[in-house]
Amino acid sequence: MESPFTHRLHTNYVPSDEETAQIQSDLASHSQELARIDERIRELTAQRDKIRNYIDSHKALISYPRRLPPDILGEIFIACLPVDRNAVMSVDEAPLVLCRICSAWRTLALSTPRLWASLHTPASFILVDERRVAAVLKWLQRSGACPLSLTFIGEGWDWAPSIGPGSIRALVEDLAASSDRWRDIKFCPLSHEAATGLAKVQDTPMLESIQITTSAFVLRQIDLSKAPRLHTIILEVDDHHGPRYLLLLPWSEHVLSRNLPSQYSHPH
């Protein structure tokens, strides 16, 4: 685009009054043309977006994931679970993130028990709100009849003013009620008040490993002789006189005890 002032551009030249008027007149016509072009660009952009939305929505309608059979999609969901630890209650990870994609995926995820068969959570996270306690129980209900892998770690079992000791004990009792499905269990540490709920533990036919830190009184209430698959046990006895351990690994072959009173011996 040619200009009579091309040779003056990008210099320190100061136009005369006559030249200034000429430049202003020239800019006015070009500004009008620019406005027309900008308006045309907006129209074309809106038209492009409309066509793009049309194409994308129809592509989604015939997309391959939408046509996957529910059983295959369910297996893909399960493959999204972490492999080096239990699942966590985070909307950024499976299984919860799968419930945020669409209603169909949410329905399938909630009805796939294996997605909810593991849980790792700090006590300080769940024991501050009754709704989180309820969420844990709902999580376990969704697991159906699947073997459970549960990890509850950290302090907080003996200090949860928001929900009270009764609710904590009720939570442990509900966990104990599912003991027939326990596979890998870890409660570290577990306060005496909360651990009394473990008295409701019945048979544990699926139990393979267990780790508990609690008082000696509570440990005496736990009968592990009815766990035919059990191969790993770590019991930490804490009676405020320093921790003492009983470690059995594997259950049927080797026994290693350290600083443990005689009453905490192999149940066989």
Rank of each mutant, 00 (worst) to 15 (best):
C102L: 14
E75P: 01
T107N: 13
R106M: 07
Y64V: 13
V97D: 02
L68E: 06
L110D: 04
P95E: 04
T107W: 08
S90M: 09
P70D: 09
T107G: 11
R67G: 10
S90T: 01
C80L: 13
N86C: 12
G74S: 12
C102P: 07
E93P: 04
L110M: 14
A104R: 13
D84E: 09
L73N: 05
P70L: 10
L73T: 03
A79T: 08
I76F: 05
F77N: 03
V88A: 10
A87G: 01
D71N: 10
P65Y: 06
D71P: 05
D92R: 11
L110R: 05
T107Q: 01
L68F: 10
R100S: 13
I78L: 07
C80W: 03
V83G: 09
D71G: 04
S63A: 14
I62D: 00
P69V: 15
L61R: 13
I72H: 04
D92I: 10
D92W: 08
L98M: 07
D92N: 13
L68C: 15
L96K: 02
V83Q: 11
A94Q: 05
C99D: 02
L110F: 05
I76S: 13
R85H: 11
L96E: 02
E93I: 08
S90L: 10
A79S: 15
L108M: 00
P70V: 08
L108A: 01
A87P: 06
Y64I: 15
E75F: 04
R67M: 12
I101F: 14
T107R: 04
P70A: 13
D71F: 13
V97Q: 05
L81D: 01
P82I: 07
W105P: 05
L73C: 13
V83T: 14
A94Y: 04
L73H: 03
T107P: 12
C102N: 15
S111H: 10
E93R: 04
F77P: 04
P69R: 12
A109R: 02
R100P: 04
L68T: 11
A60G: 11
S111V: 00
R66Y: 02
A60W: 00
P65I: 11
L98Y: 02
L96T: 00
A79R: 15
C99N: 01
F77C: 02
E93T: 04
V88W: 00
A94N: 01
V83N: 10
M89H: 03
V91K: 05
R100K: 00
I62E: 06
R66G: 14
P70Y: 01
L73I: 14
V83C: 08
L81C: 08
L73Y: 07
R66F: 11
L98I: 07
L61V: 08
P70C: 06
Y64F: 12
I76N: 11
I72D: 02
N86R: 13
M89F: 07
S90D: 07
I62N: 04
C99H: 05
Y64H: 14
C102G: 07
L110V: 08
C99Y: 03
C80R: 04
L81G: 05
I101T: 15
F77G: 00
M89I: 08
W105V: 09
D84I: 11
A94K: 02
V97L: 15
S103W: 09
F77V: 09
T107C: 08
R106G: 00
L98C: 03
P69E: 11
L98S: 01
R85V: 09
V97C: 09
C80Y: 03
I62S: 15
E75N: 12
R67Q: 09
R106E: 02
P65G: 14
V91R: 01
L61Y: 12
